[in-house]
């Protein structure tokens, strides 16, 4: 992963740490879309996503003087945001456990409900379909695969950010995708049929339910 020497945000971070609100505002402009989408894909809720994005930036603002540059600002900002979002998900889960399973944000939805074929239309619906499929995963799998496949963070970066061994990151991502495969089926079928030119090395496996590993 990039060290501080190659951090494209370094000058802004130093200025913000020195008290420049303008510099911090520019960092917000650079990252607000990514952080909002992180919160959106982890919570499947626009209102929560905005609140959590704001909270992440407020915490970053408070803590930026302590940012040592051991990682890039991007990794650090993702780390702050991920902590805020995971704390929120843990609260939701506790609340759900208290009030009953109906409020449990982690309660897996039936695949038919998560993504229905006729719903898959346009960006909003496709995004919603993906976020709902992610919501059916246990939190630890959801976070790992979202950071990797939607946000493009490296395996080592994710390991540092979540403070877990890199082998655990690989395993979580593998298992997350394995569980997502049938949940995303309607989306796959649509994507395949609407873009015949797209290269699909695994095209023939579309429509086949994922089976338990045989070995």
């Amino acid at each position: 992963m990039a060290d501080a020497g190659t951090d494209v945000d370094r000058e802004l971070v130093e200025a913000a740490a020195g008290g420049s609100r303008e510099a911090f505002d520019e960092l917000v402009r650079r990252y607000q879309r990514r952080i909002f989408n992180l919160a959106r894909s982890l919570t499947s809720n626009d209102g929560d996503a905005e609140d959590l994005t704001q909270e992440a930036f407020v915490r970053a603002y408070r803590a930026i003087k302590k940012f040592r540059g051991d990682s890039t600002f991007k990794t650090w900002m993702y780390s702050v945001a991920t902590n805020v979002i995971r704390a929120h998900m843990a609260r939701q889960k506790r609340r759900g456990a208290f009030w009953g399973a109906s409020l449990d944000a982690d309660a897996p939805e039936a695949p038919e409900r998560a993504v229905s074929r006729e719903d898959v239309e346009g960006d909003v619906v496709r995004r919603d379909a993906i976020d709902k499929a992610l919501a059916a995963l246990p939190e630890e799998l959801r976070v790992a695969v979202t950071l990797r496949d939607i946000h493009g963070l490296g395996y080592r970066e994710i390991a540092e950010l979540l403070d877990i061994p890199i082998g655990t990151v690989e395993s979580r991502i593998f298992r997350a995708r394995h569980r997502l495969r049938p949940l995303l089926e309607p989306l796959m079928t649509r994507t395949t049929s609407s873009s015949p030119g797209a290269s699909q090395s695994g095209g023939q496996s579309s429509g086949r339910p994922v089976e338990a590993k045989a070995c």
């Binding site: 894909s41 996503a49 905005e50 496709r126 939607i150 995708r177 997502l180 699909q200 695994g202």
Partner: peptide
């Protein structure tokens, strides 16, 4: 292995949401 690749393609193509109006 094929399934993993298919899921990666679907997720990397997730359309990004815009930050809500008035967020800044």
């Amino acid at each position: 292995a094929e399934d993993q690749a298919i899921v990666v393609r679907a997720l990397t193509a997730r359309p990004e949401a815009n930050v809500p109006l008035g967020f800044a």
